[in-house]
């Protein structure tokens, strides 16, 4: 079963060297997950200051600056993994380096027939 692991943390709480170290550890984790056949995808995101929001209402497109919601902790990256069950996904989430500073939200993927798989 597929799970999306969404990483939330306060962007301002990271020093540059902490962030570098976190990226390095995250890359190591993706390699281990890949060797287990559990890796589907992962990436950090540019800071929320680069965010743009789009909505379409009554056929009109509305573009605004900023994220969907202003919160103290922001979505900063994700892992998409294949796990046997929630306990397995929890174990993987616990190995994500950013979990030591922020929060990892686990969401099971809703399988939709006809949807193209990840490339």
């Amino acid at each position: 079963m597929k799970y999306m692991l969404l990483i939330y943390s306060d962007e301002n709480a990271w020093t540059e060297s902490e962030q570098k170290h976190c990226y390095k550890e995250s890359i190591e984790l993706t390699q281990k997950l890949n060797a287990n056949g559990q890796y589907l995808g992962s990436s950090p995101l540019q800071p929320v200051s680069t965010a743009t929001s789009v909505r379409v209402r009554d056929g009109k497109r509305l573009v605004t600056d900023g994220p969907f919601a202003e919160t103290r902790e922001q979505l900063g990256g994700y892992f998409l993994v294949d796990a046997a069950n929630l306990d397995d996904a929890i174990a993987i989430a616990g190995r994500i380096p950013a979990a030591r500073k922020g929060t990892v939200e686990i969401r099971p993927i809703l399988e939709l027939k006809g949807l193209l798989p990840e490339q």
Binding site: M1, A84, N85, L86, D87, D88, I106, P108
Partner: peptide, 14 residues
């Protein structure tokens, strides 16, 4: 059911 919480006794570490 949807998040697939397993029907198992947890591992020794957990």
């Amino acid at each position: 059911r949807d998040a697939r919480i397993p029907y198992q006794v947890p591992s020794r570490t957990d």
